[in-house]
Amino acid sequence: MSDRKSQLVMQLVPLIEDEMRVLQKSLDSASEAATHPEAKPENKYDTRGLEASYLAGAQRERLQELKSMLLLLQNMAMRDFAEDDKIGPTALVELEQDGRSSLYFILPLGAGFGLQWEGQPVLVVTPQAPLGQALMNKMVGDVVKVKAGGVIKEYDVVRVL
Rank of each mutant, 00 (worst) to 15 (best):
R4A: 14
L8Q: 10
M10L: 14
V13R: 00
L15V: 04
I16Q: 10
D18Q: 15
R21E: 15
Q24A: 15
S26Y: 05
L27W: 01
D28I: 11
S29Q: 13
S31E: 15
E32A: 14
A34M: 08
T35I: 08
K40T: 11
P41E: 12
Y45E: 13
D46P: 00
R48W: 11
R48E: 11
G49V: 10
G49M: 11
E51K: 15
A52F: 08
S53G: 09
L55Y: 04
A58H: 07
L63I: 05
Q64P: 02
K67C: 02
K67H: 06
S68V: 05
L71H: 12
L72P: 02
Q74P: 06
N75L: 07
R79Y: 08
D80C: 03
A82H: 00
D84P: 02
I87F: 00
G88H: 10
T90C: 02
L92D: 01
L92H: 01
V93H: 01
Q97F: 01
G99S: 01
G99K: 08
S101I: 03
S102L: 06
Y104L: 08
Y104S: 03
I106F: 05
L109N: 13
W117P: 07
E118C: 02
Q120C: 06
V125C: 04
P127N: 09
P127L: 07
Q128C: 03
Q128T: 08
P130K: 12
A134C: 06
N137Q: 12
N137R: 02
N137C: 00
G141C: 07
V143A: 07
V144I: 09
V146F: 04
E154P: 03
L161D: 15
